[in-house]
């Protein structure tokens, strides 16, 4: 019996047979990739918002908060995941924790910049209308800080999609797992397909968040028109 002479056997970069026969593997990897990214970015957002508020409220806290997040951002991803190994072991939590630490810098910086850019007159006008501190924050300051915060969220999300691949070192890297396995077996179609899918996810997430931002801030469009 002769082996089949298809693009898989010839180890070609672009291979339709690979797509059709490995559909389930690809789908599972994409789902894991999306899950890891979404959980990390949402967790980071939940941590970053209070940190940014604290840094704005107390000037003394701003320096250490920004300094610490910058230091975390400087540590290379592979080292970050490795430093978390004793805490989390070989688990998905390790990848999520690492990604949360990375996203924090971008989110805290941008939310803080957005909050600081709210004009003082706007704040005074709201207070004059009888807004308490909590309502002022929710109804005036946060919406006005939204464009800057969303810019940070978009960068954090795109970076997270790309960094999830490094999670392959502990076996939880979404599409990175396929790239890692494909590297060890010189499987060109698998490496290229997984890489392209990564970029597609990153671009799709970016466009999606841009759409969300437009929906949430209709006044910015009205002002431009």
């Amino acid at each position: 019996m002769t082996p089949p002479d298809d693009c898989l056997a010839r180890n070609e970069w672009i291979c339709g047979t690979y797509l059709s026969t490995r559909r389930h593997i690809l789908l599972d990897a994409v789902l894991q990739h999306l899950e890891l990214t979404a959980v990390s970015v949402l967790t980071a957002l939940a941590v970053a918002l209070p940190l940014a508020l604290v840094a704005r409220r107390w000037r003394l806290a701003a320096g250490p908060v920004l300094g610490l997040t910058t230091v975390l951002y400087t540590i290379p991803s592979l080292a970050m995941f490795s430093l978390l190994l004793p805490v989390y072991g070989l688990s998905a939590s390790l990848v999520v924790a690492g990604l949360v630490l990375y996203s924090l810098t971008l989110l805290v910086r941008n939310i803080l910049a957005g909050l600081r850019a709210v004009p003082e007159e706007t704040r005074q006008a709201a207070r004059g209308m009888g807004y308490g501190p909590f309502r002022l924050l929710l109804a005036v300051e946060l919406p006005l800080a939204l464009p800057a915060a969303m810019a940070g969220l978009r960068i954090a999300t795109v970076s997270a999609v790309s960094l999830v691949t490094v999670g392959a070192i502990v076996g939880f890297g979404g599409l990175g797992n396929l790239i890692y396995a494909g590297m060890n077996t010189y499987f060109k179609a698998q490496v290229l397909t997984a890489s392209v899918l990564c970029v597609v996810i990153a671009v799709a997430a970016d466009v999606l968040l841009l759409g969300v931002q437009r929906l949430l801030t209709p006044w910015t469009r009205a002002a431009r028109a």
């Binding site: 960068i155 999609v161 691949t165 010189y186 060109k188 490496v191 890489s195 990564c198 990153a202 970016d206």
Partner: peptide, 18 residues
């Protein structure tokens, strides 16, 4: 700059290796 962020470093390293 934006493209540089969206493309995973690890993927590029492996693609180049092959």
């Amino acid at each position: 700059s934006n493209a540089g962020r969206a493309v995973p470093t690890f993927a590029v390293l492996v693609l180049l290796l092959l």
